[in-house]
Design a protein around this nucleic acid. Structure first.
Lengths: 90, 90
DNA sequence: TATATACATAGAAATATATCTATATGTTGC
DNA sequence: GCAACATATAGATATATTTCTATGTATATA
């Protein structure tokens, strides 16, 4: 799979989104659970989740009324690795 | 040295700045030389260089009238590595 | 010293992004 | 089917970022 590295970096350039990623580090959470950790309103969280999802940093699965988000760790490893290699000394 | 990882990602979230980094990959360039590769005006380039410098992604040295910019590769390796590790499977 | 060159800084305008309120959609349980 | 709940979407507003023009500063040179 080929990730859009520019989308990736745009996504993680917001500390709120990195904080969401931190929350998902140890397993999936639904939107309400994520909201509890922020002062923002739910639609703002949805907006950030959508940006993360678009960058393929998170994926989601629906369970009844709830939507659980979880990290796509391979995307993170891949994008960081690719970028790092691009500027590494040979 | 401890880099500000949020500043780092904010800096590389703009494709123009990543392009500047690419240009500096194989050695230093002065501002005029960098400008030649863009449609932007010189003050805009200076602005981007300043953001990169603030994030410690580039450093500069003055040679007469010219200012040469060069990559601080250790910063790139360090920030990408740190971030990647933060979300890696253990 | 006056002029040209290279770059930086200030401030305005255009554009993009984040956040909010209001509301729509989909699911569950009565 | 209806009410309640979880989340998403629409659209407005606030804020941040990018880019520009105009100008300042430092260095080199005639």
């Amino acid at each position: 799979m080929q990730y859009d590295i520019n989308k990736f970096f745009k996504a993680i350039s917001d500390p709120n989104r990195v904080k969401i990623m931190e929350l998902l580090k140890d397993g999936e959470l639904n939107v309400s659970e994520i909201c509890k950790h922020f002062d923002m309103k739910q639609p703002s969280i949805s907006h950030h989740l959508n940006i993360l999802k678009n960058a393929e940093i998170v994926k989601d699965r629906k369970v009844g009324k709830e939507v659980y988000y979880y990290l796509n760790k391979i995307c993170i490893t891949n994008c960081c690795g690719t970028f790092q290699n691009r500027f590494a000394e040979e």
